[in-house]
Write a protein that binds this DNA or RNA. Structure first.
Lengths: 111, 111
DNA sequence: CTGGATCCGATTTGATACTG
DNA sequence: CAGTATCAAATCGGATCCAG
Protein backbone atom coordinates (compact mmCIF):
# COMPACT_ATOMS: atom_id res chain seq x y z
CA UNK A 1 0.00 0.00 0.00
CA UNK A 2 1.29 3.40 -0.97
CA UNK A 3 2.02 5.88 1.79
CA UNK A 4 -0.24 8.87 2.17
CA UNK A 5 0.64 11.56 -0.34
CA UNK A 6 -0.62 14.50 1.69
CA UNK A 7 -2.37 15.29 4.90
CA UNK A 8 -5.70 15.50 3.16
CA UNK A 9 -5.20 12.03 1.85
CA UNK A 10 -4.58 10.69 5.35
CA UNK A 11 -7.48 12.56 6.87
CA UNK A 12 -9.84 11.34 4.18
CA UNK A 13 -8.83 7.80 4.99
CA UNK A 14 -9.83 8.30 8.62
CA UNK A 15 -13.19 9.95 8.06
CA UNK A 16 -14.01 8.05 4.88
CA UNK A 17 -17.19 6.06 4.60
CA UNK A 18 -20.83 6.80 4.81
CA UNK A 19 -21.21 7.02 8.56
CA UNK A 20 -18.00 8.30 10.14
CA UNK A 21 -18.73 12.01 9.66
CA UNK A 22 -22.16 11.53 11.21
CA UNK A 23 -20.64 9.74 14.18
CA UNK A 24 -18.02 12.40 14.74
CA UNK A 25 -20.70 15.01 14.48
CA UNK A 26 -22.90 13.25 17.00
CA UNK A 27 -20.08 12.90 19.50
CA UNK A 28 -19.41 16.59 19.18
CA UNK A 29 -22.05 17.20 21.81
CA UNK A 30 -20.37 15.00 24.39
CA UNK A 31 -20.23 11.30 25.31
CA UNK A 32 -23.05 9.19 23.98
CA UNK A 33 -24.34 5.73 24.68
CA UNK A 34 -24.62 3.21 21.89
CA UNK A 35 -28.37 3.42 21.82
CA UNK A 36 -28.31 7.20 21.78
CA UNK A 37 -26.01 7.22 18.80
CA UNK A 38 -28.21 4.77 17.01
CA UNK A 39 -31.21 7.01 17.45
CA UNK A 40 -29.36 10.19 16.61
CA UNK A 41 -27.84 8.83 13.43
CA UNK A 42 -30.93 8.13 11.43
CA UNK A 43 -30.82 5.18 9.11
CA UNK A 44 -27.74 3.49 10.46
CA UNK A 45 -27.94 -0.19 11.31
CA UNK A 46 -26.44 -1.64 14.47
CA UNK A 47 -23.90 -3.47 12.44
CA UNK A 48 -22.60 -0.44 10.60
CA UNK A 49 -22.54 1.67 13.72
CA UNK A 50 -20.50 -0.90 15.60
CA UNK A 51 -18.20 -1.43 12.67
CA UNK A 52 -17.46 2.23 12.23
CA UNK A 53 -17.11 2.86 15.96
CA UNK A 54 -14.62 0.03 16.23
CA UNK A 55 -12.63 1.48 13.39
CA UNK A 56 -12.56 4.92 14.93
CA UNK A 57 -11.58 3.38 18.24
CA UNK A 58 -8.70 1.57 16.56
CA UNK A 59 -7.50 4.87 15.16
CA UNK A 60 -7.71 6.47 18.58
CA UNK A 61 -10.38 8.92 17.47
CA UNK A 62 -13.08 7.70 19.84
CA UNK A 63 -12.87 6.21 23.30
CA UNK A 64 -15.07 3.33 24.37
CA UNK A 65 -15.93 2.92 28.02
CA UNK A 66 -17.81 -0.07 29.34
CA UNK A 67 -19.85 0.17 32.53
CA UNK A 68 -20.32 -3.26 33.99
CA UNK A 69 -23.93 -2.94 34.98
CA UNK A 70 -27.25 -4.52 34.43
CA UNK A 71 -28.47 -3.46 32.00
CA UNK A 72 -25.21 -2.99 30.11
CA UNK A 73 -24.01 0.49 29.35
CA UNK A 74 -21.29 1.57 26.96
CA UNK A 75 -20.32 5.14 26.38
CA UNK A 76 -18.48 6.53 23.42
CA UNK A 77 -16.60 9.81 23.45
CA UNK A 78 -13.98 11.67 21.46
CA UNK A 79 -10.34 11.23 22.42
CA UNK A 80 -8.02 14.22 22.40
CA UNK A 81 -7.04 13.29 18.87
CA UNK A 82 -10.69 13.03 18.00
CA UNK A 83 -11.30 16.49 19.35
CA UNK A 84 -8.58 17.96 17.17
CA UNK A 85 -10.00 16.12 14.18
CA UNK A 86 -13.44 17.46 14.87
CA UNK A 87 -12.01 20.95 15.14
CA UNK A 88 -10.37 20.53 11.73
CA UNK A 89 -13.69 19.34 10.39
CA UNK A 90 -15.56 22.43 11.55
CA UNK A 91 -14.75 24.60 8.49
CA UNK A 92 -15.91 21.81 6.23
CA UNK A 93 -19.17 21.60 8.13
CA UNK A 94 -19.59 25.34 7.80
CA UNK A 95 -18.91 25.10 4.08
CA UNK A 96 -21.48 22.38 3.67
CA UNK A 97 -24.04 24.31 5.68
CA UNK A 98 -23.47 27.43 3.64
CA UNK A 99 -24.04 25.63 0.36
CA UNK A 100 -26.66 23.17 1.54
CA UNK A 101 -29.30 24.08 -0.98
CA UNK A 102 -27.20 23.92 -4.10
CA UNK A 103 -25.66 20.69 -2.87
CA UNK A 104 -29.06 19.12 -2.38
CA UNK A 105 -29.98 20.14 -5.91
CA UNK A 106 -27.06 18.43 -7.59
CA UNK A 107 -27.07 15.40 -5.40
CA UNK A 108 -26.86 11.85 -6.53
CA UNK A 109 -27.64 12.23 -10.21
CA UNK A 110 -25.63 10.03 -12.42
CA UNK A 111 -24.93 11.18 -15.95
CA UNK B 1 -33.23 9.76 0.02
CA UNK B 2 -32.98 11.58 3.32
CA UNK B 3 -31.91 15.22 3.27
CA UNK B 4 -28.52 16.14 4.61
CA UNK B 5 -28.53 16.31 8.37
CA UNK B 6 -25.69 18.77 8.74
CA UNK B 7 -23.13 20.63 6.71
CA UNK B 8 -20.52 18.01 7.35
CA UNK B 9 -22.83 15.40 5.97
CA UNK B 10 -23.26 17.35 2.76
CA UNK B 11 -19.59 18.12 2.40
CA UNK B 12 -18.64 14.49 2.94
CA UNK B 13 -20.97 13.54 0.12
CA UNK B 14 -19.15 15.88 -2.22
CA UNK B 15 -15.58 14.88 -1.38
CA UNK B 16 -16.33 11.25 -0.69
CA UNK B 17 -14.57 8.46 -2.52
CA UNK B 18 -11.03 7.40 -2.92
CA UNK B 19 -9.90 9.97 -5.44
CA UNK B 20 -11.76 13.22 -4.96
CA UNK B 21 -9.53 14.60 -2.24
CA UNK B 22 -6.49 13.85 -4.37
CA UNK B 23 -8.06 15.60 -7.33
CA UNK B 24 -8.96 18.68 -5.35
CA UNK B 25 -5.48 18.71 -3.92
CA UNK B 26 -3.91 18.46 -7.36
CA UNK B 27 -6.02 21.30 -8.74
CA UNK B 28 -4.94 23.43 -5.83
CA UNK B 29 -1.86 24.34 -7.82
CA UNK B 30 -3.83 25.67 -10.76
CA UNK B 31 -5.49 24.35 -13.92
CA UNK B 32 -4.30 20.96 -15.08
CA UNK B 33 -4.68 18.91 -18.19
CA UNK B 34 -6.18 15.45 -18.04
CA UNK B 35 -2.85 13.78 -18.65
CA UNK B 36 -1.13 15.90 -16.03
CA UNK B 37 -3.68 14.92 -13.44
CA UNK B 38 -3.27 11.29 -14.33
CA UNK B 39 0.45 11.47 -13.75
CA UNK B 40 0.17 13.51 -10.60
CA UNK B 41 -2.40 11.26 -8.99
CA UNK B 42 -0.45 8.08 -8.71
CA UNK B 43 -2.37 4.88 -9.13
CA UNK B 44 -5.56 6.28 -10.60
CA UNK B 45 -6.96 4.71 -13.75
CA UNK B 46 -8.32 6.78 -16.61
CA UNK B 47 -11.80 5.56 -15.91
CA UNK B 48 -11.84 6.55 -12.27
CA UNK B 49 -10.27 9.91 -12.99
CA UNK B 50 -12.88 10.71 -15.61
CA UNK B 51 -15.66 9.44 -13.44
CA UNK B 52 -14.67 11.54 -10.46
CA UNK B 53 -13.94 14.62 -12.56
CA UNK B 54 -17.39 14.38 -14.14
CA UNK B 55 -18.96 14.12 -10.75
CA UNK B 56 -17.11 17.14 -9.46
CA UNK B 57 -18.03 19.01 -12.60
CA UNK B 58 -21.69 18.15 -12.07
CA UNK B 59 -21.47 19.55 -8.57
CA UNK B 60 -19.87 22.72 -9.92
CA UNK B 61 -16.65 22.11 -8.03
CA UNK B 62 -14.41 21.83 -11.07
CA UNK B 63 -14.59 23.50 -14.45
CA UNK B 64 -13.85 21.64 -17.65
CA UNK B 65 -12.57 23.52 -20.63
CA UNK B 66 -12.13 21.90 -23.99
CA UNK B 67 -9.64 23.25 -26.54
CA UNK B 68 -10.61 22.10 -29.99
CA UNK B 69 -7.20 21.26 -31.26
CA UNK B 70 -5.25 18.42 -32.67
CA UNK B 71 -4.17 16.79 -30.47
CA UNK B 72 -7.11 17.37 -28.14
CA UNK B 73 -6.57 19.33 -24.99
CA UNK B 74 -8.82 19.55 -21.97
CA UNK B 75 -8.08 21.61 -18.93
CA UNK B 76 -9.59 21.20 -15.51
CA UNK B 77 -9.67 23.89 -12.88
CA UNK B 78 -11.46 24.78 -9.67
CA UNK B 79 -14.63 26.84 -9.86
CA UNK B 80 -15.24 29.54 -7.31
CA UNK B 81 -17.22 27.06 -5.29
CA UNK B 82 -14.37 24.64 -5.63
CA UNK B 83 -11.96 27.21 -4.30
CA UNK B 84 -14.06 27.77 -1.22
CA UNK B 85 -14.30 24.03 -0.70
CA UNK B 86 -10.57 23.68 -0.97
CA UNK B 87 -10.14 26.45 1.56
CA UNK B 88 -12.44 24.62 3.96
CA UNK B 89 -10.39 21.50 3.36
CA UNK B 90 -7.13 23.16 4.34
CA UNK B 91 -7.44 22.62 8.11
CA UNK B 92 -8.20 18.97 7.50
CA UNK B 93 -5.08 18.68 5.38
CA UNK B 94 -3.08 20.32 8.13
CA UNK B 95 -4.53 17.93 10.68
CA UNK B 96 -3.64 14.94 8.56
CA UNK B 97 -0.15 16.24 7.98
CA UNK B 98 0.39 16.83 11.67
CA UNK B 99 -0.62 13.30 12.60
CA UNK B 100 0.76 11.55 9.54
CA UNK B 101 2.95 9.10 11.40
CA UNK B 102 0.41 7.80 13.85
CA UNK B 103 -2.16 7.58 11.09
CA UNK B 104 0.16 5.45 8.99
CA UNK B 105 0.69 3.17 11.96
CA UNK B 106 -2.96 2.38 12.54
CA UNK B 107 -3.90 2.23 8.92
CA UNK B 108 -5.95 -0.47 7.30
CA UNK B 109 -5.91 -3.15 9.96
CA UNK B 110 -9.19 -4.89 10.31
CA UNK B 111 -10.03 -6.50 13.61
C1' DC C 1 -4.54 12.81 -26.24
C1' DT C 2 -8.98 12.42 -24.25
C1' DG C 3 -12.27 9.58 -22.76
C1' DG C 4 -16.37 6.11 -23.67
C1' DA C 5 -18.04 1.04 -22.98
C1' DT C 6 -18.03 -3.30 -20.97
C1' DC C 7 -16.94 -6.82 -17.92
C1' DC C 8 -15.50 -8.53 -13.46
C1' DG C 9 -13.94 -8.95 -8.73
C1' DA C 10 -13.50 -6.63 -4.25
C1' DT C 11 -15.35 -3.95 -0.88
C1' DT C 12 -19.15 -1.74 1.48
C1' DT C 13 -23.60 -1.59 3.11
C1' DG C 14 -27.95 -3.49 4.44
C1' DA C 15 -31.87 -6.80 6.42
C1' DT C 16 -32.73 -10.02 9.59
C1' DA C 17 -32.35 -12.96 13.30
C1' DC C 18 -29.94 -14.24 17.36
C1' DT C 19 -27.01 -13.93 22.07
C1' DG C 20 -24.95 -12.43 26.80
C1' DC D 1 -28.85 -2.65 26.15
C1' DA D 2 -25.15 -3.77 23.44
C1' DG D 3 -23.40 -6.49 20.30
C1' DT D 4 -22.78 -10.89 16.72
C1' DA D 5 -23.68 -13.83 12.75
C1' DT D 6 -25.15 -14.67 8.33
C1' DC D 7 -26.61 -13.79 3.90
C1' DA D 8 -27.67 -10.77 0.11
C1' DA D 9 -27.58 -6.36 -2.45
C1' DA D 10 -25.44 -2.29 -3.99
C1' DT D 11 -21.53 0.23 -4.94
C1' DC D 12 -16.72 0.92 -6.02
C1' DG D 13 -12.54 0.27 -8.34
C1' DG D 14 -9.80 -1.72 -11.98
C1' DA D 15 -8.47 -4.08 -16.67
C1' DT D 16 -9.09 -3.98 -21.21
C1' DC D 17 -10.56 -2.68 -25.54
C1' DC D 18 -12.52 0.88 -28.55
C1' DA D 19 -13.31 5.69 -30.79
C1' DG D 20 -13.11 10.81 -32.11
Amino acid sequence: MLPYTCGLDAAADVIGGKWKPRILWALHHGPQRFGELRKEIEGVTEKMLIQQLRDLERRDIVHREVFHQVPPKVEYSLTELGETLNAALAPLDAWGAEHLEELELTRGRRA
